[in-house]
């Protein structure tokens, strides 16, 4: 009897909070395009709404990937940025850009830009490297995880700089645009390209919320409860790398969303991934829309790339988490 009452009470309030957040997200998406100066409906339709929706999807996906990494690595400091996965994916884009391999690949009715593929392999290489190093040397200890993430991130950043230095002016500017991270889209193309990948990853994560819950308790407990840890990890690595690759190809490595948002969400809604996944993804989406609106309207004469804002906010937050952990 006690079990039932307590669980129901908990879950009820969590559902209410989720509904509240969804309402908040819808309001944000509707209001933000109107913030700042604009002349005529065209600006809204071609620039503002696509930009807000793309920002929402990017924040949604980055938050999801951070959350998945934190469960896999049983470490709240893991996110695409701190694990060097963003740098890996950026290197993939830079590589495609440098060698002028940009083209569209048609798979059935889908048109996939080759930058997605470069970015995917870059992300997979870095996540595999960090995973192998931490597993071999320290069983997912924070310091090893972060140091290997930083080392791999720096190594890839070095390679990006090299490619940038050797590139012609157009490629160099293209690469620079990605490494900062920003949402400068025209029309709904980016949004529509990202949408299926984000939706599929979200559904996959939500269907596997129990597996993610177990993973977050560590390998020993997960295996003892009957989870095929290696299989689910591989599935999650592939789907997360794909998700990051697509977001980074479109928006560049926007930092720290995957770190800040899941952390705040846990404080509000708890650790159960059944609620945490929808909550932190929607919050992530809204947060990036909010940050992007600030980036767009902060100065009257220029628009800042949103990556600058998230990194300025995320850096100190990361330090706070690190010190708290100590």
């Amino acid at each position: 009897m006690i079990t039932k009452t307590i669980t129901k009470n908990n879950n009820h309030s969590k559902y209410y909070m989720l509904i509240l957040l969804i309402v908040f997200a819808i309001i944000t998406i509707i209001i933000c395009p109107f913030i700042g100066q604009y002349d005529g409906r065209e600006i809204l339709e071609i620039f503002r709404f696509p930009r807000v929706l793309t920002a929402f999807l990017a924040g949604f996906g980055l938050s999801l990937s951070g959350l998945i990494f934190q469960n896999i690595f049983t470490n709240e400091l893991a996110c695409p940025y701190t694990l060097g996965v963003s740098s890996g994916a950026s290197l993939g884009v830079a590589f495609i850009s440098y060698f002028h391999l940009s083209m569209a690949i048609h798979v059935f009715s889908l048109t996939i830009p080759s930058t997605y593929i470069g970015s995917f392999f870059g992300a997979m290489i870095s996540v595999s490297a960090v995973y192998s190093i931490t597993k071999y040397y320290g069983g997912f200890k924070s310091e090893i995880l972060l140091l290997s993430g930083v080392a791999i991130g720096l190594f890839f950043s070095g390679l990006i700089l090299l490619l940038q230095y050797l590139s012609d002016a157009t490629s160099a500017i293209n690469i620079l645009r990605w490494t900062i991270g920003g949402i400068e889209v025209v029309g709904f193309d980016s949004f529509l390209l990202m949408l299926p990948f984000v939706v599929i990853s979200f559904i996959f994560a939500l269907l596997n919320f129990e597996e993610l819950n177990l993973l977050s308790l560590g390998e020993e407990i997960s295996i003892s409860r009957g989870l095929n840890v290696s299989k689910i990890r591989i599935h999650l690595f592939i789907i997360t790398s794909l998700l990051i690759a697509i977001i980074i190809s479109e928006c560049g490595p926007i930092g720290f969303i995957g770190l800040i948002i899941p952390h705040i969400s846990r404080l509000i809604i708890g650790y159960n991934n059944k609620f945490l996944i929808p909550f932190s993804t929607i919050l992530g989406g809204s947060f990036l829309v909010f940050c992007d609106t600030i980036a767009r309207t902060l100065f009257t004469n220029i628009e800042l790339p949103v990556g600058i804002i998230t990194t300025i906010v995320g850096g100190p937050f990361f330090l706070y988490l690190l010190l708290k952990k100590k």
Binding site: G218, E220, I221, G226, L227, N272
Partner: peptide, 29 residues
């Protein structure tokens, strides 16, 4: 498979305190 194994044996390691799930959630898992 791993699920079948877990219906026959289970292992309780030395526990760490960084488990933030509610007790009822954890038991159901």
């Amino acid at each position: 498979n791993q699920k079948e194994i877990a219906t026959i044996i289970t292992y309780l390691p030395q526990i760490n305190s960084s488990n933030h799930f509610f007790v009822d959630e954890f038991l159901k898992m």
